[in-house]
């Protein structure tokens, strides 16, 4: 049931986010909005030589959207954009309910959102940060 998402890992990322701050040295900034519930995430990244050197997010939204973005940044900082892309692909597949055990492990804490696939109304909250990331990566390749 829904309550299982609201475990300590999630509430902690929501209340004490590590990556929620501005990032003046970012060279990519993109806002992702979920109009149905007003979740709003601004993702800031500094990408150099194909590596995500630094990143943060700002905005407001429900605990799931916020914690998901924070856990995403935990995962992708220091990774190449190809690695980040791969993680995003796995995360989105996890939400749709088709992911292997090994893949799940690669998502570390973000894997706690696996069961959200049973709650269609909340899927958009969980993937907002990841979709925004995908768009930045696509832009950085142009």
């Amino acid at each position: 049931m829904a309550s299982t998402f609201y475990n300590e890992v999630l509430t902690d990322h929501n209340i004490n986010p590590e990556h929620k701050h501005s990032l003046p040295e970012a060279n990519y900034t993109l806002e992702g909005v979920n109009p149905s519930c007003g979740d709003d995430i601004i993702l800031n990244l500094r990408i150099e030589d194909g590596i995500i050197k630094d990143g943060s997010y700002e905005g407001s939204g429900c605990a799931i959207s916020q914690a998901s973005a924070d856990m995403m940044l935990d995962l992708i900082l220091g990774k190449t954009i190809e690695e980040a892309e791969k993680l995003s692909e796995i995360f989105l597949r996890m939400i749709k309910g088709s992911v292997s055990e090994v893949e799940l492990e690669s998502l570390e804490e973000a894997s706690i959102l696996q069961d959200i696939s049973h709650m269609p109304a909340r899927v958009k909250c969980a993937v907002l940060g990841w979709h925004t990331l995908d768009e930045i990566i696509n832009k950085s390749k142009e």
Binding site: A2, S3, F5, Y6, C37, G61, C62, A63, I64, M119, A121, R122, C125
Partner: peptide, 8 residues
């Protein structure tokens, strides 16, 4: 967030 209120 109200979505969290409804979910809990």
């Amino acid at each position: 967030h109200p979505h969290d209120i409804a979910a809990i």
